[in-house]
Design a protein around this nucleic acid. Structure first.
Lengths: 216, 216
DNA sequence: ATCTTTCCCACCTAGGTGTGAACC
DNA sequence: ATGGTTCACACCTAGGTGGGAAAG
């Protein structure tokens, strides 16, 4: 659904896409991947032990206070109040969503750092996992299948006197539907072709039954 | 050579060994490993692409200024002005050491952080590599074989006005001799038995030549 | 000849993929 | 019968070991 990404939407000379009206920018490559999936209708596998998100969320920050101390938080929030079904090769709403599991935001392991440090490198949440088993392990988010979610990044600034100020940046491009198995063949093929860890798979050679009757 | 490590040398309730007169403490397990190798005469493999140190350096810090900003630096320095040879199952000095390659200290990738953050977790330099090829890749140290070295940790505190203060902690327990192949069978066996990545090796089964002459 | 160094190798650790059969 | 879920699995990526033959 939605927007296609083109080179001329790039923000300035360093190939970054402004993803919010705030300081969060995704690199061109990363953003392209997300928008490619979004066009097909992103599905994310969830399972009992936790499955990594692919694509994962990676971005850079700008405009922070260089000497201010920040936490960077990652969260997954509902993107719709409906639940969905895959019918006729399309995800269609079919009812109200379930009540969400209680999850806690995941604090980027580099937190807390000063603004200049955050801005100096890419910030990656590649190890975040998605699950359908309730639990409280940090970095594993428990979701409902057939429901729609998106990623929200928050910046927590440590102010003087122990106070904090928080700004939240939901990232629309990361919208996905949680599933235990892919419904859309196009999504599966896209993942196989873009995720280095799944290039592995070869369609199995149908092993014909071998006649083992004794020769006599 | 030197000291054996016993449980009652442990510093306090959390099983740490004070390795210097400063804030650096190695966990009991980690320190035991180092002292075990030290008794045999530690050898570290160096090669052209860089070989990891094993054991590696891992410790915790105490007594820092919780809100002060620090870098933690890792360096390898000469431990002797001699070079050595393995004779009669012992390392013996046989001459003057070569002039050292110019290497730059390796800044722990988490640097800079505030004291409370450094003190909250173990600090590990497991990815440091040793090489015999001169080069300037960060985290790869170029050494001379048959010479003796040790690890020095430095704490760099960022003071107000951009100044820094540095304190250095050479760690005697990490003393080793650089080699391109193990000389002491005991060292090799110790590494095989304590490094998970080398458990792999099985002494090869001598493959007897098979007679493939045609039966006629 | 002797000793050190190089290179390739089998063999691991560690963990990320989608699949199909079985399960519910 | 239908459709979502679970599980073991083959197949990868990525990279750390010491050994032995060969080279220097």
């Amino acid at each position: 659904m939605q927007m296609k990404l083109t080179e001329d939407m790039v923000d300035g000379k360093d190939n970054c896409i402004p993803l919010t009206n705030g300081p969060i920018r995704m690199s061109l490559m990363e953003a392209k991947l997300w928008y490619t999936f979004l066009e097909v209708g992103t599905e994310m596998i969830i399972n009992r032990t936790g499955r990594r998100m692919f694509p994962y969320v990676e971005f850079s920050l700008r405009g922070l206070d260089p000497v201010g101390l920040y936490d960077v938080m990652f969260d997954i929030i509902p993107a719709s109040n409906k639940c969905f079904k895959f019918l006729n090769n399309k995800w269609v709403p079919i009812g109200k969503k379930e009540h969400e599991f209680k999850t806690q935001p995941f604090k980027h392991p580099d937190s807390p750092r000063i603004g200049s440090e955050w801005m100096a490198r890419k910030i990656s949440f590649e190890k975040v996992k998605l699950s359908n088993r309730p639990g409280s392990k940090s970095g594993i988010f428990t979701l409902h299948t057939q429901q729609k979610y998106l990623v929200r990044i928050s910046l927590v600034k440590h102010e003087k006197g122990g106070e904090v100020s928080v700004v939240e940046y939901p990232i629309q491009a990361t919208t996905f539907i949680a599933v235990t198995a892919y419904n859309n063949r196009k999504v599966a093929d896209l993942k196989i072709n873009s995720n280095p860890y799944s290039k592995a798979f070869r369609y199995p050679v149908k092993s014909l039954p071998i006649d083992v009757s004794p020769i006599n």
